[in-house]
């Protein structure tokens, strides 16, 4: 009955989230949790490629921003409903991810990482010069009128983000525990050996990059309605890319729940620090925690717990 435990938790989380929208009346809570959940989706998505497959993506903010600007552009041009915008962002960023997947044919390791960073900055320059979506000056986005069964639009966005976060986690969990996940792990450890052991490396890498891209795009799609003013600086913010790397690294990259732990922990710390101290200082916390974990605990919190258990087991036995 192992599978049921996961889906049971999913059900409990979704019901609790829905009850939360009916019970809490301070909008601040929804703004805060929205940001944490957005970080969680980004972290889970990054980890599918970075943690499972071993390709580091520094351009997460680029995928996110393409999702953001897909919404901005399509909303302005056609005024499409939110589910369609989500789908469109997922498809476009999935295709971008697919292209990144083909890039892995030529670029390994460090070169791939630099190429993703470069791609994000090229995209930022393009958006800076794209007048239709406001260019460098940015643009205002109006929240749609109706808010479905919720009291206001932020509650709807919160619930949407919760569903997306759960879905992203379920996808990541499926990928890591299936045959695909074993193939990805083999690619991460040694791509040449994996190919010679029958692992269809290209196909699996394409699955991995496409899933990553689509999830990041979907994470960005509701963002314009959340902030109501979008400019390239906020959509391509470095902190988005850093968080997407830092959260899995701190939580642990080898397992699906690593980035979830990292995102909840780091997200909670950041939101607390933003309120109580300053938003710049919370950026510093992320940077310092990232560097500390990489140097001192490369397997993250999950790794620390595993080591602790092993030690305890050894002492008892």
């Amino acid at each position: 009955m192992k599978i049921d435990k996961f889906w049971l938790s999913v059900l409990v989380i979704l019901i609790a989230g829905f009850a939360f929208t009916k019970l809490a009346d301070n909008e601040f809570y929804f703004f805060t949790t929205y940001v944490v959940l957005q970080g969680l989706i980004m972290a889970v998505a990054w980890n599918i490629l970075g943690g499972f497959t071993g390709y580091v993506n520094f351009g997460s903010a680029g995928f996110f921003a393409v999702g953001v600007y897909t919404t901005v552009a399509l909303n302005k041009a056609f005024g499409l409903p939110l589910p369609v915008l989500l789908l469109a962002a997922g498809v476009i960023c999935g295709l971008l991810g697919l292209a990144a997947g083909y890039l892995t044919l030529r670029l390994k390791g460090v070169y791939f990482a630099i190429a993703t960073l470069a791609t994000a900055l090229v995209l930022e320059t393009i958006v800076n010069n794209w007048k239709f979506v406001g260019g460098a000056a940015g643009t205002y986005v109006l929240q749609p009128k109706g808010s479905f069964i919720f009291d206001n639009y932020i509650e709807l966005l919160f619930m949407l983000m919760l569903v997306l976060a759960v879905a992203a986690t379920a996808i990541s969990r499926y990928l890591s525990s299936s045959r695909i996940g074993q193939g990805l792990a083999a690619i991460r450890d040694d791509e040449v050996a994996a190919e010679c052991m029958g692992v269809p490396t290209l196909r699996l890498k394409l699955i991995s990059t496409t899933a990553m891209g689509a999830l990041m795009g979907i994470a960005g799609a509701p963002f314009p309605f959340f902030v109501t003013f979008v400019d390239p600086v906020s959509a391509f913010a470095l902190v988005i890319a850093v968080n997407a790397i830092a959260m899995p690294m701190i939580g642990g990259t080898a397992v699906w729940y690593g980035p979830v732990i990292g995102a909840l922990l780091l997200g909670a710390i950041q939101e607390t620090a933003t309120v109580t101290i300053s938003s710049e200082l919370n950026l510093l916390i992320v940077g310092v925690m990232l560097v500390l974990f990489i140097t001192l605990a490369p397997k993250g919190i999950v790794g620390l717990i595993q080591d602790y258990k092993k030690k305890k087991g050894a002492n008892n036995g």
Binding site: Q182, G183, A186, D189, A194, M197, G198, V199
Partner: peptide, 16 residues
């Protein structure tokens, strides 16, 4: 495959 045990290493070709 360094992150795996010896046994897990053999599972990769068996599964693929």
């Amino acid at each position: 495959f360094k992150s795996m045990t010896v046994l897990e290493n053999l599972c990769i070709p068996l599964e693929f």
